[in-house]
Simulated scan of single mutants.
Amino acid sequence: MITIYFVAADAQSAERAVGGGPQGEDTVESEVDPTALAWLDAQLTGRDLDDLLGEDLTTADGSDAAMVGRSGGAYVVALDPLFTTELARADVDELLPTWLESDDVDGADPEDMSDFLTDLQTLCADAADAGHRVYCWVGA
């Protein structure tokens, strides 16, 4: 499985990535599934982890489900704006050690995860600066 986190102006723009993946420079490629970010979301936003992992994926503002589009084995989901805002201003060095202890990233290389989290944080900050959102494309 490949995951590519990317910035798009809106869900309609993000949905265009479903078929072949996002294009452009504002991307972060990783093997980190978006569900593995739930622990970070809970730590940063104070939301309940069980709620975040529940079947009803809604954003903090109560808008529609995070699923933007699906085609074959690929799909695009929107990351919650509250989470991306908090991650953009978080202390990655403080978050990383406890995230590495979570079941979500058990056994992951600490340096790879640090690079991923730093790159994702930059992507979140860039999206916020542009008034856009962060999405995740998942495919094979």
Rank of each mutant, 00 (worst) to 15 (best):
T85R: 07
D106S: 12
M113D: 03
D61K: 01
D33N: 10
A88S: 13
L95F: 10
A42F: 04
V138I: 13
P81C: 02
G46W: 11
V105K: 02
G20W: 15
R133K: 09
P110Y: 05
L96K: 09
L117T: 05
W39V: 15
P97V: 10
W39T: 15
G54L: 01
E29Q: 15
A127W: 06
A130R: 12
D10L: 08
A125P: 01
D10G: 03
Q12S: 13
A17G: 05
D10N: 12
S71E: 13
E15I: 01
A78N: 00
G131A: 08
E15Y: 01
Q23I: 04
T35S: 12
G19T: 12
P110L: 06
Y135M: 02
S102E: 09
V32W: 09
L37G: 10
G54F: 08
L37D: 08
V32M: 14
T58H: 13
G72R: 01
E15G: 13
F83S: 03
L57I: 03
G72P: 00
I4W: 04
D50I: 00
S114A: 13
Q12G: 08
L82Q: 10
Y5T: 03
D112H: 12
A65M: 04
S63Q: 09
A127T: 06
T3H: 07
S114C: 05
A128S: 14
L123Y: 04
V134R: 01
E55W: 00
D64P: 07
V7M: 02
A127Y: 05
L57G: 06
V105D: 11
L87K: 02
M67N: 01
W99P: 11
E15W: 04
D119A: 08
L37P: 03
S114Q: 10
L40M: 11
D33P: 15
G62P: 01
S71C: 00
W137F: 09
A74T: 02
L57P: 02
D103K: 14
D93M: 06
L117Q: 04
A127K: 10
D103H: 12
P34K: 10
W39E: 14
D64N: 05
T98V: 14
V7P: 02
E111L: 09
D109C: 14
E94Q: 11
G131H: 08
V28L: 11
A36H: 06
S13P: 08
L100A: 15
A90L: 11
S71W: 05
L82R: 05
Q43A: 14
D33C: 08
A42S: 15
A42W: 00
V18T: 14
S63K: 03
D33S: 09
W99G: 15
C124R: 06
D50S: 11
V138T: 13
D129F: 12
E86V: 00
L95P: 06
L82I: 02
T35Y: 08
D109L: 13
R89F: 07
W137C: 03
D50A: 10
E55V: 03
L44G: 06
G107A: 13
A78D: 01
R133A: 10
L117M: 08
D115M: 08
I2Q: 00
G24R: 03
G73V: 06
D10S: 06
G139Y: 05
A36N: 07
S114R: 12
D51K: 06
V18I: 09
G107Q: 12
T45N: 07
G24Y: 00
G54T: 00
Q12V: 15
V18N: 07
D91H: 12
V28T: 10
G131V: 05
D106G: 05
D119I: 01
D93P: 11
R16L: 12
